[in-house]
Design a protein around this nucleic acid. Sequence first.
DNA 1: CGGCAAAAGTGGAACGATTCCAGAAAAGGG
DNA 2: CCCTTTTCTGGAATCGTTCCACTTTTGCCG
Lengths: 144, 144
Amino acid sequence: MTSDFEARLRAVSLRVTRPRLAVMAALTDHPHVDTDAVIALVRADLPTVSHQAVYDVLRALTDSGLVRRIQPAGATARYEMRVRDNHHHVVCRSCGAIADVDCAVGNAPCLTASDDHGFVIDEAEVVYWGRCPACVSKRPEGIP
Amino acid sequence: MTSDFEARLRAVSLRVTRPRLAVMAALTDHPHVDTDAVIALVRADLPTVSHQAVYDVLRALTDSGLVRRIQPAGATARYEMRVRDNHHHVVCRSCGAIADVDCAVGNAPCLTASDDHGFVIDEAEVVYWGRCPACVSKRPEGIP
DNA sequence: CGGCAAAAGTGGAACGATTCCAGAAAAGGG
DNA sequence: CCCTTTTCTGGAATCGTTCCACTTTTGCCG
């Protein structure tokens, strides 16, 4: 597993460091976590890692395409390892929980805007907003 | 025009105040502006309005559905008056420019996730990422 | 028309996520 | 094993936004 992470890092010419491996392990076990959670998870293994290192690692991994950053409106950034498969997310308005959703209508339509205003579009991001099962059962009616 | 804004405010039982009318006028003339820009536009008419008043007004209008807040990942919040018509946005990766895009595939598919994980979904938000005509013509290749 | 309670606005301080910075440590090619 | 470059540390700074206590306005009501 670690050697897999190593290979992926080398494939994008990033050096293999303990903080990077720890971040990749954390994201593999915990999809959709925010930076604070990543810091906590990484420090469980490597207690001396600085918050800045985690920010740097997340940026390096995101820039090189090994990690995907998702940032629902009004929330802090979250990260996941699942990448390059055009999946989307459902976000709970009450508790912020996130779940994966495969592309609703296949591949093509998601990337096709009705009028692109001359923009060169390379990605269509879809966020479904609603309430998760737990929040719905707590309060069947509207948001608290 | 102002009387239209008044009517809309009263319709959602909000008091009619100068700052609120000024914000509505600013958003009508300038779609997709951020809070700073709204503050500047409002102060052109009412120089003494505090930044806090603008934040409060934007929140009140957004909560009551008169204004829509959009917040592309990694950018500050932006606001628009066009509301309740299920339109989406294209965002330029280089300069942050935003343009409106009508729903790509009609109404139904946009709200239909392939597997909703038990979430009660009430909205599907789509953001198209790419590069605007101006940025493409400046640097036809990748992002700077 | 003038008064009153509730709603809005003012100005300034506080906050939280993220970034900037300069120096120390570690990675990996020769 | 050494040297250059990349990465990490620790602390300060930034930026958008929110919190707070107090003052002003709005709009209902007599």
